[in-house]
Structure formats: structure tokens, C-alpha cells
Computed example of a mutant assay.
Amino acid sequence: MALNPGKRAFPMTSIRSILATWALAVPAAATAQSIPVAPMAAPPQAGAIPLGTGGVAEMPPESWFTLAGRPTVRNVATATLLPVLPDKANATGAAVVIAAGGGFVMESMEAEAMKPARWLADHGIAAFVLKYRLDPTPAPMEAFKQAALARFAAAAAAGAKGGASVAAPPAALADAQAAMRLVRAQTTRWGVDPRRVAYMGFSAGAIMGIDLVKAAAPGTTPDLFAAIYPAMAPTPVPAGAPPLFVAVASDDELFGKQGYGLPESWRRAGGAVELHVYERGGHGFGFDGKPGTTSAGWNAALLGWLGAHGWLTK
């Protein structure tokens, strides 16, 4: 099944925007052949727990590859949750479910999932990496690259200048909800306080987190929500929304023209907001931030915010 540009086009302002999401610096006129992609074997995923949320019709086999050296996965048909737990002596009892970005056609599993998970565990916080279901893409790598560029080019042509936000695919949202329920249901197993389960999402993963809060299904609303370069358009926010942390660059190629509608919507609904806007960094600066810019310090701000809400103490 090829990507359908009109099906659920992820709003991009240029082809360069999606390449920035992949942390690649290439000209806007780049062809699919210029994108440095290399196939890789699926990494060990021992301990990953199937969420039992179902499959995806017409899905080719799951495929792992590197983009700029970053392990990435596509064609995910079975959602899983991988616990990355702290040393018991240092565990605080707090937890964070993590969802990477990738436009709902891939997931940046190292830079936006495993790396922050290990960092959280080092600080005593139980981390849970969500590998959620994606839209199908063509199995051959060259066909995938061509189809992905066609999809993003079509979205760019639509020209969402400060346009409305987007919604997560229903399957991905259901996976996030299942992940939140599972962590809270297995608190004894993992030593987690069910009242201290946060959610952190990057780009598409952050969009999914916004929808997670808006859906407010029983047992699925996070106690804290960290949105890293999310869609920034205004959106309805329910009463009782959790404290929100946002880290974004002012030169974000995807959402930089949307202003600050997301945190403003949160404030108007009575929710607490911490907003960090970095002068430069673009979209997709990852857990380490973009070298040479102040976005490289964003995770220190996140740590302070988590500490202020009691995630670093027992």
C-alpha cells in the first residue's frame, strides 16, 4: 500500500522541513536518492510487551533503518511497550511513557525514545518506550523514500501557513492509551506510583499526547505532559489538564508559524504551563538538542521541571 498524500497529510512547509525532522541537512530540491538511508537489523527488544491493540491492514513487514545514523523503524503493525527501569536503590516511583516522532510513517527510536529513556532511568524515573502503530509504507526502501517525499511535498503544496493542528491516527492514539493503562495497572511489578505517570512525546508523539489529554479516557490522562516540538496551533483543552512542558525552537520549520496557541489554550483552560522557546534549533533537534544552539540545553530544563513536580524524589 503506497502512501496516500491526501489521506492524513502531515503539515509541512517544505520538503526541507521533513528532512529537518529526520535531522538531515539537504537542499529543498533534494531527490529521494540524496537522503542517506541505510537498512539495519532490528535491534534486540527483549522485554518489549505487546499491547494487544490489534494490527494494521495491508502492512508490509516491520523495517528498521538509519537516518543520519539514527535507528528508525517503519511499518509498525504491533504496538509494544519497552520498560527501561532505574536501579531499585535510586528509583523514585515516578514514571514516563515516551513516544518518538516521525510523521506517523516512522519512529526515531534512538534519538527520541531510547536515549531519553536511559536518561530518565539514570535519574531514578521508570521509562516506558512506546512503539506505536504507523501508517503503511512501501516495503522497498527506494519506493518508501519516493512515496514519503511525495506525501510531504503534497502537504507542503497545501501550504499550512500557521494552519490548524493535526490529529494522531486512531490506532496510534489507542496505543498511547493502552500504554498509560498498562503502566498504571502494573505499578507493583515496576515499582511505579500510579499518581505519577507522565507522558513525553516528540513531534508526532507530542501530537499524540495532545490527543491523549483531549480524549480524557479513564485511566489514560498523564499526570504531567512534556511536548517536545509539538504542533503549536490552538486546540480545545479539557478542564483538569495536566501541567504542560513545551520545548520548541522559534525557527521550527514545521510549526514555527503557528505562534503559541497550544500553551495559550492550556492556560485558558486553567492548566499550568512551562514554555521554553529557543532562538535556533529547527524541528527535530532530538534529545540532545542541535549542537551550537541553546536548544542543546533543553533537557536540563526538563529535569528541573520534573523535579519541581516531585518526579525526582521518593
Rank of each mutant, 00 (worst) to 15 (best):
L3A: 04
N4E: 14
N4I: 05
G6Y: 07
R8G: 08
I15F: 10
R16M: 12
S17H: 14
L19D: 12
L19T: 13
A20N: 15
A23I: 09
V26W: 07
P27R: 06
A30W: 07
T31D: 15
A32R: 03
I35C: 05
P36T: 11
P36N: 11
V37S: 06
A48P: 01
G52K: 01
G54W: 00
P60L: 00
P61I: 00
T66G: 15
R70W: 12
P71A: 08
N75Q: 01
T80G: 02
L82W: 00
L82A: 02
A91D: 10
A91L: 08
G93T: 03
A94F: 00
A94N: 02
A95F: 03
I98P: 04
A100K: 01
F104R: 05
E107T: 08
E112K: 05
E112M: 08
M114W: 06
M114I: 10
K115D: 13
K115S: 08
I125R: 00
A126S: 11
A126L: 02
V129Q: 05
L130I: 06
K131A: 02
Y132C: 02
L134Y: 00
L134V: 00
P138A: 01
P138T: 01
F144Y: 09
F144H: 01
A148Q: 12
A150D: 15
R151A: 14
F152R: 08
F152T: 13
A153N: 14
A157M: 14
A160R: 07
A160N: 11
K161A: 13
S165C: 13
A168T: 14
P169E: 13
P169M: 10
A172Y: 05
L173A: 06
A176G: 15
A176K: 05
Q177A: 13
A178W: 03
M180Q: 14
M180T: 09
R184M: 08
V192Q: 03
D193R: 04
D193A: 02
P194D: 09
A198C: 08
A204G: 10
A204N: 06
A204D: 10
A206I: 06
I207H: 06
I207T: 14
I207P: 04
G209M: 09
D211A: 14
L212Y: 13
A216F: 15
P222S: 11
P222N: 10
A227G: 11
I228H: 09
P230R: 04
P238W: 13
A239R: 15
L244S: 06
V248E: 11
D252K: 12
L254D: 09
Q258R: 10
P263L: 08
P263M: 10
S265L: 09
W266S: 07
R268P: 03
V273G: 09
V273L: 12
L275Q: 11
G282V: 06
G282E: 09
G282K: 05
H283P: 13
F285H: 05
D288S: 11
D288Q: 05
G289A: 03
G289Y: 03
G289R: 01
K290F: 07
K290Q: 14
G292F: 00
S295T: 05
A296N: 02
G297F: 05
A300W: 07
A301W: 04
L302Q: 03
W305L: 10
G307D: 08
G310T: 02
